[in-house]
Computed example of a mutant assay.
Amino acid sequence: MTSMTTALPRPADPPRSGAWGDRVGELLVVGGATPILFLFSWLLRSSVPLDAAELAVGFTMFHAAHVINDPHFSVTYLLFYKDARARAFGARWSPAQRLRYLVVGFVAPVLLGAWAVAALVTRSAFTMGLLIQLMFLLVGWHYVKQGFGVFTVLAARRGVRFSPRERLAVLAHCFAGWAYAWASPADPGRELEEKGVVYTSIAHPPGLERITQIVFFATTLPLVLMLVRKWRREGRLPLVAPLTGLLCSIWAWSIYSGVDPLVRYMIPALHSVQYLYFVHLLKGNEAREREGPPWFERSARVRLGILAVSALGLGWLLFHGAPAALDGALVPRGTIPTSGTLGPTPYFAAIYAFVNIHHYLMDTVIWRRDNPETRYLQAPALPEERPAS
């Protein structure tokens, strides 16, 4: 998620019930479950040996990825390529947004695909390793930008808007967090393995880690001052859930993601749940609107069910069916990962990196305010969450 809609019309307010439960549920799915999981991890590590706890949590999260992580990637394709012809060449989107759509939707996948194919054809672990490292570089950018989108959208749903200068203070903290997360820890250039590919990482010195750390902590003060001034100027700021989503995305899931040996297995799922919640808001509000005139389309429950099943199926194909079939048919059995080799699952590595990077890029189009469909995110929050007049 990259931004929020500020001036577009909003759909009619859906019926609300269980206000307290809705607020708590939203808080948990956008990041509020993270401190609870830290407590759970501590209790589990106090009860059983660490190896057994890691095995149990790692096994659980590996299988949970089928219904959480994988659909979070695949649903992006379903959102992005819907009505592709109209989006690319119609008049509904602005020229800049149409150009962005064409570049991300058609140019970028061709370039990424050519990169992956070149690595596979030449059996170059170095070339594939560069693609994988690009994925790891951009994943931090993706996490903090999603955190920024969560913050601004949830704040807007509560009636809180931010000026360009205030948004800049938030974005500075986000991008500084991304830089610090990537630079930490310092890396002299190590031999790493990812999905069977053994490659040497690009070195970054300790000085870079220290500089990015200083910059990151320096951006904390303007962020805090901005929020304090806004609170004094505007009164009550109902920002518990928005700030939770922002700070978890930057601090807990990006910079200090390795602080707990068990929670680190859960971070991709926490990020994915946060993402899927906003997909639910977007498509749920749209589906409820299109139940009535002038469309009279199928019920919102059916439409969301079809989307969920489609995302599950496509996720399985992208991360399990297609890679397993290609690696099984084209890679000799018994291949062992060694230094500078692609290992036994090079097609899995290629598809995994391709989908991740393309997912990050597609999000820059789907969640921009230029996309008229983001108005469906702006259905007002609960009355209790809105600021007083």
Results as ranks from 00 to 15, higher is better:
327 D>I: 01
85 R>L: 14
314 L>F: 03
275 Y>L: 15
289 E>Y: 07
64 A>M: 14
296 F>D: 15
331 V>F: 02
269 A>V: 00
219 T>I: 05
375 R>K: 09
235 G>C: 03
190 R>L: 15
148 F>E: 10
254 S>A: 12
253 W>A: 01
10 R>S: 11
8 L>P: 00
361 L>K: 02
381 A>Q: 10
57 V>F: 04
145 K>N: 15
87 R>I: 08
264 R>F: 10
367 W>K: 02
325 A>M: 12
117 V>L: 11
379 A>G: 00
293 P>R: 14
153 V>A: 07
131 L>T: 02
295 W>L: 13
220 T>F: 15
90 G>N: 06
36 I>E: 00
33 A>R: 04
82 K>S: 14
78 L>V: 06
28 L>Q: 01
373 E>D: 15
175 F>E: 10
219 T>E: 00
245 G>H: 05
222 P>I: 08
312 L>K: 02
389 S>P: 14
223 L>S: 01
146 Q>L: 13
81 Y>H: 00
332 P>L: 07
57 V>Y: 04
293 P>K: 13
274 Q>I: 03
277 Y>Q: 10
165 R>W: 14
223 L>E: 05
9 P>Y: 12
311 A>Q: 03
305 G>E: 00
54 E>Q: 15
156 A>S: 12
254 S>L: 09
18 G>F: 09
181 A>F: 01
215 V>M: 06
269 A>H: 14
136 F>H: 13
128 M>P: 04
264 R>Y: 10
201 S>V: 11
290 R>T: 12
232 R>N: 08
294 P>D: 09
